[in-house]
């Protein structure tokens, strides 16, 4: 059974693309065939984080508009052979996406892959709506601060009304992923606590990704953080989250100071 998962947030800059790449590669490392799809038409980034920016020939728009076949646009990852990328177009905008072509593409992807992970653009406009349109599940990426939490709340409302599943009377299964979490700042009250976020959003927690320079370092060398430095705290948190997506019961380790220390030690060695 293939699954379509949208990674969404409402707010920009919270870590949707990082999460898409990290979860996609973690699921691929677990032996699943995975495609990560960039829906941020006009502002594509996923190709950079996947380290495939020089290999883009055809893109999502070409495929939905029948200008290219799906296999021409799919880019296979150089490290994991069961991980693929479908890049967005950088020269077009979100109006170039049409719903019909997208429905056809999603059907084709479902026939080929176990997991189709859609990297949503920020906002609540057409691009974000189309990214969630065919989702079976959603990973809602939230930073522990009020504006991000409120935007996520808004997106959850849209997941319950604008998706194909919701229109048919079903429900998109939702998972909350808290990113850029800093235990010491949460302790000082500079950040919302995890319990506060959960209480406001009322969505089951998929994982907590600690704030870490490893994430930035991985993006800059064009690698998902789970591949760049698998032992780092964020990579392990993403790997746990991926296992939970696969239905495994993994104990929730809310990152502590200790974790930051470990990541610093390993980070130092890897760099």
């Amino acid at each position: 059974m293939s699954k379509v998962i949208v990674v969404t947030s409402g707010k920009g800059g919270v870590g949707k693309t990082t999460t898409t790449a990290a979860l996609g590669s973690a699921l691929a490392m677990h032996g699943k065939s995975v495609v990560v799809v960039d829906f941020d038409v006009g502002l594509r980034n996923l190709d950079l984080i996947m380290g495939a920016e020089r290999r883009v020939v055809y893109d999502l728009i070409n495929v939905t508009q029948n200008q290219a076949k799906l296999h021409q646009a799919l880019i296979r990852d150089k490290r994991l052979e069961n991980l693929w990328l479908l890049p967005a177009s950088q020269t077009r905008d979100k109006d170039s996406l049409n719903e019909k072509g997208l429905g056809r593409l999603m059907k084709e992807l479902k026939a080929q892959f176990d997991f189709i992970i859609c990297d949503s653009p920020a906002g609540i406009e057409r691009g974000a709506i189309l990214a969630m349109r065919h989702a079976d599940e959603a990973v809602i990426v939230t930073n522990p601060e009020v504006s991000s939490v409120r935007d996520s709340d808004r997106i959850i409302g849209l997941l319950d009304s604008k998706t194909e599943k919701a229109e048919k009377g079903g429900k998109v299964e939702k998972h909350l992923l808290i990113t850029r979490y800093d235990q010491s700042r949460a302790g000082r009250g500079d950040m919302l606590k995890i319990d506060d976020v959960l209480e406001i959003l009322l969505v089951p927690l998929l994982g907590v990704i600690p704030e870490s320079e490893q994430v930035l370092r991985a993006s800059n060398i064009g690698q998902p953080v789970t591949l760049a430095n698998p032992m780092s705290a964020p990579a392990r948190a993403y790997s746990d989250a991926a296992r939970r997506l696969l239905g495994e019961a993994v104990a929730m380790n809310v990152p502590h100071e200790r974790y930051n220390l470990i990541s610093r030690i390993f980070g130092g060695r890897a760099a």
Partner: peptide
Amino acid sequence: EEPLRSGQ
């Protein structure tokens, strides 16, 4: 029977 989300 559902929570009311922001914007609703």
